[in-house]
Design a binder for these strands. Sequence first.
DNA 1: CGCTAATCATTAGTGCACTAACTATTTTGA
DNA 2: TCAAAATAGTTAGTGCACTAATGATTAGCG
Lengths: 161, 161
Amino acid sequence: MPDPAGTASVDEDLLLERQLCFALTVASRSVVGAYKPVLDALGLTHPQYLVMLCLWESSPRSVRDISDALAQEPATISPLLRRLEVAGHITRQRAEGDERSLAVRLTASGAALRQKATAVPGTMLARLGLDREEVAELHTSMMRLIAATRSADNGAASPAS
Amino acid sequence: MPDPAGTASVDEDLLLERQLCFALTVASRSVVGAYKPVLDALGLTHPQYLVMLCLWESSPRSVRDISDALAQEPATISPLLRRLEVAGHITRQRAEGDERSLAVRLTASGAALRQKATAVPGTMLARLGLDREEVAELHTSMMRLIAATRSADNGAASPAS
DNA sequence: CGCTAATCATTAGTGCACTAACTATTTTGA
DNA sequence: TCAAAATAGTTAGTGCACTAATGATTAGCG
């Protein structure tokens, strides 16, 4: 059984491996955790903050539109929007042209929250001790990873059909 | 402290900002999602896979030991271990020396699963189209980010500006 | 027109991750 | 020695993220 050249790296891969996906999930959780005290001041969770960023860019948007922008399922966004409505930041009403679609719209309160949020990015850069250049590098790496998973989905999913 | 030179970039930051934390969370979800079909063949979720990696490295471990290794709360690990026990991969019994502690131990089934898991790292590298060098670079970036959040927790919490 | 397809949003159900509160064991120190 | 503090693990409760199924509305086509 023991292949001198190959099996040695297989065992190491089960360690190295842990560093790849593991470091990524820990980094994600850690960064989101670092946002928490800052976003607590706004009364938002991190996913809710991302939705608000979406709406601050353009206000009447459908659920599908938001879920596409955030790369999440509509089923994930739905209850999240309900909480934002309860908090008074958005309204939810059926769209005029298409009664299937929902028009998610900022309230005055939701629009006003944007002013307080303008301080968040700078605060986070300071907290993490990063400059914009480092952030840009990390962003590039993440986008490459995301693109890699997309090609993985398309290419390796079902070659037999 | 509104700096006149900086105010122009504040609006842009609310877009750029989204690229930082947002790209990280999307990348994390995407990579975990890419693992799913591979880990489904082992009957493991991604967090369960990480626990098994832990135990394949050393078998009788306490809950606290595992939770430290994975940087998660014991309350997160606890129900996860219960499912792994139901699946027959581990046993849970009180430690001999300290009745408070739990000895989490691989079963024969759990140890055997390691053989099938040895193929996972190579499969994932191929699926993502990455080589070990790129993985190493990404890992370095993630570790720097994680370290940055740790210093953020320690340093920036108390001094009220 | 009327019937079927497709689309939009929601709900049900599973599993993760966290905080806070709780039980059960040590460990400690007056 | 024996009560208080510390430690180990679990449970309750909230929120996210996903898949699959449901209900409601619109679009397409014979």
